[in-house]
Design a protein around this nucleic acid. Structure first.
Lengths: 92, 92
DNA sequence: ACAGTATTTAATTATTAAATTAAATTCTAA
DNA sequence: TTAGAATTTAATTTAATAATTAAATACTGT
């Protein structure tokens, strides 16, 4: 793997390598969810979910769509979806 | 993904999600290498390589074999090897 | 315009991770 | 048995992450 790719991929992994973020990504595998729905599913605070979503948005993994005062989140990068699938196949 | 698995997989990802460690894993994909060989390939200090190897050994990703005063390292978990391959397919 | 809901931002604190340097182990070969 | 090479360990410093709380923003419906 080229140096440049190593940096890119390790940055991507870092943004997935947190229990809450991994959980969020699993929730978003087959649907889009609002911050509130995610908060409800993972049992933490809005601020906490929001901050973790921000990390993943900055990484380009997740995109948000606004509708009224709800923000719907979904996985932006198809490859990340495939990576999650692979990890589930391998480790679950 | 079950809560228990989420913890397990995110811990695994964390131990891969560092540029130096990812680089080391790529180097070890098709062979075993000593600490010195790895240090040479990644251009850092022995201590630094050693510490990163320790992290991956503790995670069970890497095993070491001692011969004379050399320590040969290799990937211990076949699934990690497959994960690296998948990432290369997806992102390289 | 106002009250209420959803989300983000900011600030603080605590925890964990990383790199560096030097000292300590472990083994070999003479 | 001692000098030298390979690796680890320990200690220190610096930096990055995470959670929490409170305040701010953005939008809705009345």
């Amino acid at each position: 793997m080229l140096e440049e790719k190593v940096e890119e991929v390790s940055a991507l992994l870092k943004s997935i390598a947190h229990p809450l973020r991994l959980k969020i990504l699993c929730l978003l595998q087959d649907r889009e969810l609002t911050v509130g729905e995610i908060r409800e599913a993972v049992q933490t605070t809005n601020a906490n979910v929001s901050q973790h979503l921000t990390i993943m948005r900055n990484q380009g993994i997740i995109v948000a769509r606004k509708d009224a005062n709800f923000i719907y989140n979904r996985i932006a990068d198809q490859r990340v979806d495939e990576l999650i699938n692979t990890m589930q196949d391998l480790f679950c």
